[in-house]
Amino acid sequence: MTATLVGMGAHDRRADKDADFSAYMSARQTALYRTAYLLAGDHATAEDLLQNAFAKLYLSWDRVRDREALDGYVRRIMVNENNSLWRRAWKRREHSTDTLPETGSVDTYDDGMGGVLWSFVQTLPPKQRSVIVLRYYEQLSEAEIAETLGISVGTVKSQASRALAGLRARAPRSLDPHGPHHDESGDAR
């Protein structure tokens, strides 16, 4: 069937769709941009992620029956895009040349900025970083993260565990009083 169906009905549906979508964008763009930024680590990529996710949502708008699930749909697309193969490869190369913060010289966290930990989060592999952002910023449950990422709850747990271990390994001692830096005598390892 290749007939062209361009009538008032289609036009009205398009207008309704645009109005609904516009309302959703207005309500959620700021919040979802923050998630995009935490996933991407820079504004250009964050904008790219979010615009791409909004565009795919727009294309799928009529098929997304559960309006409560829209944020999850957008998050899933952003995470997937950010983790996509070449973007990941590029990030890996980028990080291989990064100079990581000197943990010994930045041994304070209570500076009111959280910048040190954020810089460490940025060095995590994308999947681990996604789990960290969804868990500790979006505060999703492990099951919700599993659904968003399309992986098992067990994988979410293992990714989160690895991510936190990675952060502990890099973080200054004072950032993790309960981490493995300390033995019974309180000596740093």
Binding site: L38, H43, F54, G114, L117, Y137
Partner: peptide, 18 residues
């Protein structure tokens, strides 16, 4: 602390670029 760091990074952003 990770939660706080992410909040402090993201919450000041008020961007609606599109």
């Amino acid at each position: 602390q990770v939660h706080d760091a992410l909040r402090r990074t993201a919450d000041p952003l008020h961007r609606t670029p599109f």
